[in-house]
Design a protein around this nucleic acid. Sequence first.
DNA 1: ATTAGTTTGCTAACGGTGTTCACTCTAATA
DNA 2: TATTAGAGTGAACACCGTTAGCAAACTAAT
Lengths: 255, 255
Amino acid sequence: MTSNTAGGPSRRERMRAETIAEIKASARGQLLQHGPSGISLRAIAREVGVTPAALYRYFDSLDALLIQLVCDLYDELIAATRAAMDEAPPEAHLDRMKAWVWAFRAWSVGNRREFELMISYPEGNSAMSICADPKTIDSLEFDAVTLKSMEHAQLCGRELAQFYRQTEGEGFEFGSVTLPEMSDGLQQELIESCSLMIIGERLPVSWVFAFTSAWVRVFGLVTMEAFGSLPVQNNIDEFYKAQIKSMLRDFGMEQ
Amino acid sequence: MTSNTAGGPSRRERMRAETIAEIKASARGQLLQHGPSGISLRAIAREVGVTPAALYRYFDSLDALLIQLVCDLYDELIAATRAAMDEAPPEAHLDRMKAWVWAFRAWSVGNRREFELMISYPEGNSAMSICADPKTIDSLEFDAVTLKSMEHAQLCGRELAQFYRQTEGEGFEFGSVTLPEMSDGLQQELIESCSLMIIGERLPVSWVFAFTSAWVRVFGLVTMEAFGSLPVQNNIDEFYKAQIKSMLRDFGMEQ
DNA sequence: ATTAGTTTGCTAACGGTGTTCACTCTAATA
DNA sequence: TATTAGAGTGAACACCGTTAGCAAACTAAT
């Protein structure tokens, strides 16, 4: 394939990658200007300076291009989130989880149109999904977008597992305080579908429930804020702080 | 205008209303079959048996048609919710609020595509909004869709206000238990933008915070379930029940 | 250096979309 | 009955995503 002695990408491959980047950049520009449904293949071709048909040498369809774009955006979100988490020490798991929330929020609100595209693609999607069997996670059972969204959720999930392991020896008393009574079936599914699947480690039901509840709340918060339908407009930071406090209380923590 | 002695709608008006209903029905059919973006003006015209241009006698544009459709869907959701609430006695405010949640969920999940259209329209929307100044609520500051979504939220909001009035005399002790510490600014805005604006009555901060928190949670739950990204798949009813219990605890209630 | 093969881009076309305009016909009004 | 407002048509415009066939350019191997 490549005739390089250095083994690096060939000239053609470099050119191709550059063109692909250019196409994606143009698509993102149109996303910013006209929203998700305003992304036009022909307009991209016009901007890149090429015939519409030529784009099919790089993407199978407009849909495929958008999916690729969404994956890139997830990578961007994940990178931003990870960077924010890494500003806290590796063992400060609580701070890192907080940082995850703030970074998730900041990126989504700061990139509303991108976020809009992400949660609305594909049509019959399972965006921002959280649950996945690790055995099937690498199979082709999930589309690329779902995989990315799970990768994003796992950033926080794994941190929770480590936090649990950290506090396990300290005789923390969780669970009895906060867990509402629920059927065994739900407890089973909660543990299996989240503790086992996402975090890769068994956690107490109270933790898993608190985690899934918090996930729903954060998802609601970020989505509503990005779409401008949050019940608060001026003191949003404070509102988030209060929400985080409320969620921590569900974990049995006061701070 | 109308030449009827009975004062009812004229023959033309009846015909027009019938055609409009037919158009909307066709649009909804396509929504069900092909999703929000699969609604085509030309396809509607084809189905109704008329030229595409003829539809412009009834709607200014496809966008206007869709907005009208969304408003109708909100009316349907509101009617279903109200009916479910009215199955409980008028003074059983807690049961009525629970019924609101269940009906909201049932309708949204039972009409996924419709729900999808509702929360994704218009593009830069404020769907499922909750806050509005009652002085400006009737002015043209809000689009029709936002007004409908507020009407839907008010169904629950008013019930909360009546519930508060009901329990006020009974010496219930709320607030101190659950309200996380927050700035005065946020407290101000919470009270003003929700208690005053939606419910039309001053409530304690703890109630308002618990209400907005619950609203975010319910919105997150319903949206995620409708989009298939809920962390639970098999015991969803139980999960909702546990969530409701958790929310009630935020109000300081155990049951 | 020439050949063979791959990659890239083009032109042209097909069928689809929302929207507008000028025109006809019909039904309700004065 | 004459007038007028409403509903519907047909043709056109400017887009859209996608496909097929063909020509040029580049790479790789003989």
